[in-house]
């Protein structure tokens, strides 16, 4: 993939090609079959192979039911593939671990814990001293824009705020890879845009590897270095598209950029051709 030289890059500067970054996640001929009843089986994923490089922001884009979330769960170690294997830094993934931090559409916060308690949970589990964990967590809460809400319970927060807490909670235990499962899918358009911008700003600071599942073409192009297009029944990779847009990205500038527009239109056309656009929304 093409890596943009980090912060210094100016808007119109031509993109330079560098040595490919080392692979962090390798998905090797993964298939997933769900037995829906005694006689019927649903092939959620069929022979998926994909390599994700370190510090890349990769989106998996596809219609509902194409198995994109399942693929993410396999990388997370939450689901075992029927065949094939996923590897993290060369080691087979056999279960969940703190090197891969999930952020779910459903937030999945611990409702009995306050915002601070949720964010501190991971570091405390990792054996970080309470005072240190609290200090780090307060910094993270501020970073996601929730300063002042440390002692609120999840139930008192709006959807967007909950997802901010979920992001901070996952970042708190320093996973090497962020696994984001349609994280903004349950939010209204305005909140969604704000969170996309904030996510990119946060990501720019340390550029963790991100695997981001979405069904929004705009979102995938705006955020990603690479978009993996999937088709359904059975879930397969259609095409992998490198997004050569400079970073840091500013939404207001990007929306006017013909290159951005072309990516969006091209991808939508490709889905249209296979008559899957209807299920994309």
């Amino acid at each position: 993939m093409k890596v943009v030289p980090s912060r210094s890059s100016e808007w119109v500067k031509p993109v330079t090609r560098q040595e490919p970054a080392p692979a962090i996640i390798e998905i090797d001929h993964v298939s997933q079959v769900f037995q829906t009843s005694a006689r019927r089986a649903h092939v959620a994923l069929s022979d998926i192979s994909l390599t994700i490089e370190e510090r890349a922001f990769v989106s998996i884009l596809g219609p509902s039911g194409c198995g994109k979330s399942t693929l993410l769960y396999i990388v997370g170690g939450f689901v075992s593939p029927t065949s094939g294997a996923a590897k993290m830094k060369g080691n087979a993934i056999t279960g969940p671990g703190p090197d891969r931090g999930p952020v779910f559409q459903e937030f999945a916060l611990f409702p009995w814990k306050t915002v601070l308690g949720n964010v501190m949970y991971g570091p405390r589990q990792q054996g970080v001293r309470a005072t240190d964990a609290e200090a780090q967590s307060r910094t993270l809460i501020e970073m996601v824009g929730l300063k002042g809400y440390e002692n609120f319970y999840p139930k008192e927060l709006s959807g967007g705020m909950k997802q901010r807490v979920a992001l901070a909670r996952t970042l708190a235990y320093h996973p090497e890879v962020l696994l984001m499962d349609e994280p903004f899918g349950a939010l209204d358009a305005y909140t969604r845009t704000r969170l996309q911008n904030d996510l990119l700003n946060i990501w720019e600071r340390d550029r963790k590897t991100v695997l981001f599942v979405t069904h929004s073409v705009d979102e995938a192009v705006f955020l990603s270095d690479k978009v993996v297009m999937m088709s359904k029944s059975p879930g397969r990779i259609r095409q992998v598209i490198d997004i050569d847009l400079p970073r840091p990205r500013r939404r207001s500038e990007l929306l006017l950029d013909p290159r951005y527009q072309k990516y969006v239109v091209d991808i939508e056309r490709m889905f249209d051709e296979s008559d899957e656009a209807g299920s994309l929304a």
Partner: peptide, 14 residues
């Protein structure tokens, strides 16, 4: 109990 809540805990090493 939400499965994803348990997954979140598992990812933290519980």
């Amino acid at each position: 109990v939400e499965e994803k809540m348990l997954w979140s805990g598992a990812a933290m090493g519980l």
